[in-house]
């Protein structure tokens, strides 16, 4: 059994309006050192397999097919266990 953690963010070259809004808020609060804010999604789930290579391949497929829209989003994931 592995615990998978998937992070999905808007691609760097694609505008992230939420990130821009949050960055503006941080600046107006005095956190002027902040730049390049991106808002993303965090997903966690368990995978029923003992084979790490297989688990990685399966999670990659899930990301490509459903969890991320690779036209506008990047993803990365971690496996634990």
């Amino acid at each position: 059994m592995f615990k998978a953690t998937v992070y999905v963010t808007v691609k760097e070259n694609v505008l992230d309006p939420q990130g821009v809004a949050v960055q503006g808020a941080l600046h107006s609060m005095g956190f002027s050192e902040v730049s390049k804010v991106r808002i993303g999604k965090y997903m966690a789930f368990e995978i029923d397999t003992t084979d790490r290579v297989e688990a990685e391949e399966r999670v990659r497929q899930m990301c490509e097919k459903l969890l991320a829209n690779t036209v506008v989003e990047d993803y990365r994931f971690e496996l634990e266990g």
């Binding site: 808007v10 694609v14 505008l15 309006p17 939420q18 809004a21 036209v71 506008v72």
Partner: peptide
């Protein structure tokens, strides 16, 4: 082709 993102104005 393409994708629909959040409105710029949110």
């Amino acid at each position: 082709p393409g994708a629909l993102r959040r409105n710029m104005s949110l």
